[in-house]
Design a protein around this nucleic acid. Structure first.
Lengths: 124, 124
DNA sequence: TATACCTGTTACCTTTTGGTAAGTAAAATA
DNA sequence: TATTTTACTTACCAAAAGGTAACAGGTATA
């Protein structure tokens, strides 16, 4: 009986994880979201944060994130054109998930790669 | 100055997220890990949890997770051969990350798909 | 001997993801 | 007039990820 209940919970969790993964999946979406947690940014700003992303991939992934309602795009009709990207409330709601991802990424690096954590203090 | 510090933290976080993503990436690894949080399991058990995974993919991803030290494989020399997979301490250390991933997945589904959360109570 | 169980493997193919390089459009500046 | 800036787009290609179907090898059971 507990087993059956466990199975149901497991199935539910598997479903939820797949929903989340579908949005997160790929090499660039999480980095883009992280970049935007440091404030609204323009296309070129994100490119500077994520040094090795090509304009093609950035444009493509920004569109996907917009469709998923994670970010929003605002066009300013200024001198040279200006576009600002920002996190939506749904994007902001990923904060804890991102924090845990980062924490674990650092933990993993320390365990496996064995490197020291020099910036640890700054991350409070 | 705060900006420069922010940039450094941002770069550090981007690095950590990429470390984590490299391990998590793909359609099947997170589901496999979730399945194993419900106890040690055999090849066939995991296949039953994750209905649409093929033996090829399961075998391939189990190997990858073993190499990343997330899971371990134990062979029992019994009647029909028996192999048991379990989470290592490093795998167990993903629990909070998984919890947040699941929480967000449910949140996302409620926001976007608009479905009701019937199993919510059972997930404490 | 034949069949079933368990844990995979192999070959082959399709789809998705990502990379490179070049180009575009509209306005402002030299 | 030519160049710069911003924000992309397009065409083309390579690599990675994933799917399908069949098979394998060892043990136990009918």
């Amino acid at each position: 009986m507990t087993k059956i209940k466990n199975d149901a919970i497991c199935q539910y969790k598997l479903m939820a994880s797949r929903d989340a993964l579908a949005v997160i999946q790929g090499k660039w979406r999480i980095p883009i979201i992280i970049s935007l947690t440091y404030g609204n940014k323009r296309f070129g700003d994100i490119q500077k944060d994520i040094e090795d992303i090509s304009p093609k991939m950035l444009s493509q992934e920004l569109k996907a994130l917009e469709e998923s309602k994670i970010i929003s795009r605002k066009l300013y009709d200024s001198m040279p054109i200006m576009v600002e990207y920002s996190l939506t409330p749904l994007g902001i709601s990923m904060q804890k998930l991102l924090d845990e991802l980062l924490k674990w990424g650092i933990h993993f690096r320390n365990e496996i790669v064995g490197k020291k954590k020099t910036l640890k203090r700054q991350l409070n």
